[in-house]
Design a binder for these strands. Structure first.
Lengths: 339, 339
DNA sequence: TTGTATGCGTTATCAT
DNA sequence: ATGATAACGCATACAA
C-alpha cells in the first residue's frame, strides 16, 4: 500500500496542490466542476488526508487528553470510567476530535504530562480528575493558557464539573426524614476532604431545616470502605444513644454497616434505615437492597466535554463551573411504613 | 506563551538546526561540549519538541488506537475497561506511545475508523475487541498491512489474545467434581457463540475424563443474564432429574440461579453447588459468596500491548495468538464437605 | 476561480 | 563534528 498524497491527486486531476487542498476544505471559491472532478479522483485513488500533516499546518491536533493516575486503584474511576469516556466521546467525536488517554505518574518526571502532552502539542485540551490536577499544575496550565477542565471541584480560576454533594447530603437525609427516621448518623470520610465537608453540610442542613439538633457523636469519620463502615456501625449501634438510621459516604461503607446490623440482629429497615452515596452495581443486590444516590457519570463526561470544547473554541471565555444533580434511588433499606 | 522551536534554539546556540535536531536525538556524532551547550539553552528557553512535526518527519504518530463500540452497553467492558487500558498503557507508555480511544459506530460510515484513525495515520497500530473487528475489517487491515491485535479470538491470519475458555470450563467442572458433585448442569450462552462452544467443550471434557455420561437436558442455552439464569434454574431444579450443581456462563447467570434456589428452598452449597465464569466485584458479596473464574484483565491488556508493539517494530512477524490462563476462586457456593 | 510560493517544526541526506 | 538543504503532507497569503 503506497501512500497517496495531495500532490498525487493534483497531478492526476491536472490542478495545483492548493486547489486540491481547497477542495478538501470545501472552499466556496472552487467551482463545482473541479470539486466534483477532484473528489472523484480522490475516491478512485482512495485518498485520505494525513492528520499529522494537517495538524502541523493548522497547528492543532484534534485530540483531547484525558489524564488518569493509574497508579491508584480508584474504585470510583474503575467503575465509572467507561461511562465518563462515553460521555466525553459523545461530544468531541462529532467535532472530529479523538480522545487520548494518558497515565499520569507523578513519580516519573521525565515523562511529565505537561511536556508529553501539553507542551509537545499532542492534545488541544485536557480533562482530568481533581486528584491529578494539583494546584501547582493548575497554575502552570493557566500560565500556558492551555484549555483544561477538572472533573471534581478545584480552586479557581479554573473550569470544573462536579456533582452537587451538598444537595446529595440533603437528599439522602431528607429521604430518611420522610420515611420517619429522626435519629440520623453520618458515617465515613475524612474531615479534611472537601467531599466530606460538602456531603456532611448537606446532611446538617437537612437536619437543621427539620429542627433536629445534631448529635456530634453521630458523625463518624474514617475510611470510606467496607471495613470502616463495619467498625463505625458496630460502635454506633452498641452505644447508649443508638441512631435509627445512617447516611453513608459510599456504598461500600453501607455494605459494612449492613454487615454490622446483621451481626447485631438489627433489622433493616424497620430498626435501622441505611442510605448511601455513590450507587454501585452491587447496591441493588444487597439484602435488603440499598437506597442510594445515583450520579449520571455519562452526563459528567458530556458536561466536561462541552466546557472544554467551548474553551478551545474561545480561549477568552471566563472559567465556569457546573454542579450536576444526583438522583435518589429509594430501595428497601430505607422503606419502612412509619407507624 | 510564544512557542519556541528548533530554529530558536539553533539561533541562540549559534549552531545549525540540524545540529540541534541531532542533540535532540542524542546522536553520537555530536561533541559532548555542544550537546551540553545546546541542552542548557533548551532548558533555559523551556523548549519541548513538537510531536506533530516530529511525527510528520518520522512518519509515525507514536499513538496506539483502542477501538471500542460504545453504542453497546457491554457489561463486560464496562467492568474491565479500566484494567485493560491500564495493562496496555503499562507497556506502550514506557515506549513513549500514547493511547487513543476511539468510538466505533458502525452506523456512521463517514467517520469510519479505518479512515479516521488508520488511513489518516493518527495511530500506528490498533487494539480492538473481536466484536468490532469483523472479518471484513480484518481482511482490509491485512491488506493495508496495518498492525492490529484482537482482544478475543478471531479468524486467522491475525494476532489475538484471549482467555482459555476451554480450560476455564474444565477448571470449573473439575472443581465441582472434586467437591463431590457429580450431576452437573451448564447454563447460559447461545449455541452459535464460539465462547459458549469453548466453555461448554471444557465442561464436556472434564465430565468425559471423569467417566460421567452427559445429560443433554442439562445443557441449557439462553441469555447469559440474571433473568436467563433464573428461568433456566427454575426449570432445571423442578424437573424429574435434578442436577446437584451448575456451571454458569457468567456471574449474572449465577445470581439468577442463586435466586431460584433460594425461592425453591434449595440450600447452596449442600444441595446445590454453583460455579460461574467471569468473576465480578459482586461475586464475593452474594449469599453464599460465589465460586468463580477470575480473569486477569490487566494482563490481557499487557499481552495485547506486547503483541502489538512487536508487530509495529517488525512488520514481517507472523501473526501470533495467546491463550491466558484463568484463575479459580473457590468460595462457599461450592464448598461442601463431601460425606 | 485557479496557481505559485512559503510556512508549519522536525528529520535525514549530503556535503564540508 | 557541524552545516546547508531537501523532504514530510498540507494550508494559506498572495498573484494571476
Amino acid at each position: 500500500m503506497m501512500k497517496v498524497t495531495i500532490s498525487d491527486i493534483a497531478k492526476a486531476a491536472n490542478v495545483a496542490k492548493s486547489t486540491v487542498s481547497k477542495v478538501l476544505n470545501d472552499s466556496p471559491k472552487i467551482s463545482q466542476d473541479t470539486k466534483r472532478k477532484v473528489r472523484d479522483i480522490m475516491q478512485q485513488m482512495n485518498y485520505i488526508p494525513s492528520s499529522i500533516a494537517t495538524g502541523l499546518a493548522r497547528q492543532s491536533s484534534l485530540n483531547i487528553g484525558l489524564l488518569v493516575d493509574m497508579s491508584k486503584e480508584s474504585e470510583f474511576l474503575n467503575q465509572f470510567f467507561y461511562n465518563i469516556i462515553g460521555g466525553i466521546e459523545s461530544v468531541i467525536g462529532p467535532l472530529n476530535y479523538e480522545l487520548t488517554l494518558s497515565n499520569v505518574q507523578h513519580d516519573r518526571p521525565e515523562g511529565h504530562f505537561l511536556n508529553r502532552l501539553v507542551r509537545s502539542k499532542r492534545v488541544d485540551g485536557i480533562i482530568a480528575n481533581n486528584s491529578v490536577l494539583t494546584e501547582e499544575l493548575s497554575i502552570e496550565l493557566n500560565r500556558l493558557q492551555f484549555p483544561y477542565i477538572s472533573i471534581g471541584e478545584i480552586i479557581p480560576p479554573a473550569s470544573w464539573v462536579d456533582f452537587d454533594n451538598v444537595l446529595g447530603g440533603r437528599m439522602l437525609t431528607g429521604h430518611l426524614l420522610e420515611q420517619g427516621y429522626s435519629a440520623i448518623a453520618f458515617i465515613g470520610g475524612q474531615q479534611f476532604e472537601t467531599i466530606f465537608t460538602h456531603r456532611c453540610n448537606g446532611f446538617l442542613q437537612a437536619l437543621q431545616q427539620a429542627g433536629i439538633t445534631v448529635n456530634s457523636n453521630w458523625i463518624v469519620n474514617g475510611q470510606s470502605d467496607e471495613h470502616g463502615g463495619y467498625q463505625a456501625a458496630l460502635n454506633l449501634l452498641q452505644s447508649d444513644e443508638r441512631p435509627d438510621s445512617i447516611v453513608c459516604m459510599s456504598s461500600y461503607v453501607a455494605f459494612g454497616v449492613l454487615q454490622a446490623a446483621k451481626e447485631l440482629g438489627i433489622n433493616v429497615p424497620s430498626q435501622l434505615g441505611i442510605a448511601a452515596f455513590d450507587e454501585y452495581p452491587l447496591s441493588r443486590y444487597t439484602t435488603p437492597p440499598l437506597t442510594s444516590l445515583n450520579i449520571d457519570t455519562f452526563s459528567l463526561g458530556v458536561s466536561s466535554g462541552h466546557l472544554l470544547m467551548d474553551r478551545i473554541r474561545n480561549s477568552e471565555l471566563p472559567s465556569r463551573s457546573l454542579l450536576l444533580e444526583p438522583e435518589l434511588i429509594p430501595r428497601q433499606s430505607t422503606l419502612r411504613n412509619p407507624s
